[in-house]
């Protein structure tokens, strides 16, 4: 019985594959469209995965260049690409001035990665204000009473903390500093938020991999990386006390909880940061990336293909997103985005 069932799904699979190939060939030869996008490096891994599966399914090719959020914004404003991707949402005035529409594409999490002797991954607990004080240099040693108060059972060395940050401009830094600005007034006035900021202390690593390498090598260090890099490099990470006061573990569940705790319907152009999200189990340093498209596209077919591409990512591409440690958008949000497209993008 079970075997029969398996066989059945197998043939079903085959049939679907054949159909897909037939469709791909048919559409591919008839009218394959090449669309281009540019911007955020945060979403590059997942967009390229989606582009590959989208190409086999529809025959259309998506060419995405990860030139950074700033570059993506500039390119879509200039109209040289079909879509831009940015880690920082544009405000309403900016969007309207350039005739742009904006919607989220994927959600991810950033984790404090640390390397402290005798502390296992996930053992260390930090709060937003303590994290900000560490990155401000106001807390200089691991044995500081502020850290000890959060970790009653843990013996921390009385060693200097080495702070590691990104040396290149990045959406990860933008999201991290946005969070620190929200939880620490001192951080907000002294440093602020941006893809590159004036770091008061510490050393800079190039890219997520650079920060991961430094944290791994330097004893008593702390940095921040995208969740996937912490997992892949088996870095020590900290749990965080979130806005609701709950102790949360980084991972898909807590990232998803952050996405669910925001009332997307009440936002304008989905411009809301998931940093310090209010949900009871929400991971506090959750990040979204946004797509920018023209409201009046120069080429309607290109725009339609681009929208199809994102629809593909949110449905068929879900498992790919999960495999890369991103969080797919919740279904309710996808419906809201579709309604938003209908209202704002002519295609």
């Amino acid at each position: 019985m079970q075997q029969e069932l398996r066989l059945n799904t197998h043939t079903h699979h085959l049939g679907r594959c054949a159909l897909a190939i037939a469709l791909a060939c048919g559409i591919g030869s008839a009218h394959a469209t090449d669309i281009t996008g540019a911007g955020s490096s945060f979403v590059y891994p997942i967009l390229s995965k989606w582009a590959a599966s989208f190409a086999t399914q529809s025959g259309h090719r998506v060419n995405y260049q990860s030139i950074g959020s700033g570059g993506g914004i500039a390119q879509i404003k200039a109209g040289t690409v079909d879509f831009g991707a940015t880690d920082m949402p544009l405000d309403k005035a900016d969007l309207e001035q350039h005739g742009l529409a904006q919607f989220p594409d994927v959600i991810g999490g950033i984790v404090p990665a640390c390397n402290v002797a005798g502390v296992a991954p996930g053992q260390l607990v930090l709060s937003g204000s303590v994290l900000a004080d560490i990155f401000l240099g106001r807390i200089g040693e691991w044995s500081d009473p502020a850290i000890a108060a959060l970790n009653p059972g843990l013996t921390l060395p009385s060693a200097r903390i080495t702070v590691v940050h990104r040396s290149d401009g990045s959406g990860t830094s933008f999201n991290f500093t946005t969070y620190l600005s929200l939880v620490s007034p001192q951080w907000k006035t002294a440093v602020g938020s941006g893809s590159t900021v004036q770091w008061p202390v510490g050393i800079g690593g190039k890219g997520n991999e650079g920060v991961a390498a430094y944290v791994k090598q330097l004893p008593n260090s702390i940095g921040y990386v995208e969740y996937a890099y912490a997992v892949q490099n088996q870095l020590g990470y900290a749990r965080m006390r979130n806005a609701a006061g709950t102790l949360v573990e980084p991972g898909r569940d807590s990232f998803q909880a952050a996405a669910a705790s925001v009332d997307w319907a009440k936002t304008e152009n989905f411009a809301v940061s998931l940093a310090n999200a209010p949900g009871a189990t929400a991971w506090p340093i959750t990040a979204t990336s946004w797509v920018l498209m023209r409201r009046q596209p120069q080429d309607a077919t290109h725009a339609a293909v681009a929208l199809d591409f994102f629809r593909h990512g949110w449905t068929a591409g879900k498992s790919a997103a999960i495999a890369l440690d991103y969080v797919p958008l919740p279904d309710t949000l996808v419906q809201q985005i579709e309604a938003y497209w209908h209202m704002h993008i002519k295609s």
Partner: peptide, 8 residues
């Protein structure tokens, strides 16, 4: 080299 990519 570090900052040019994301600088506007």
């Amino acid at each position: 080299a570090n900052e040019f990519n994301e600088a506007v």
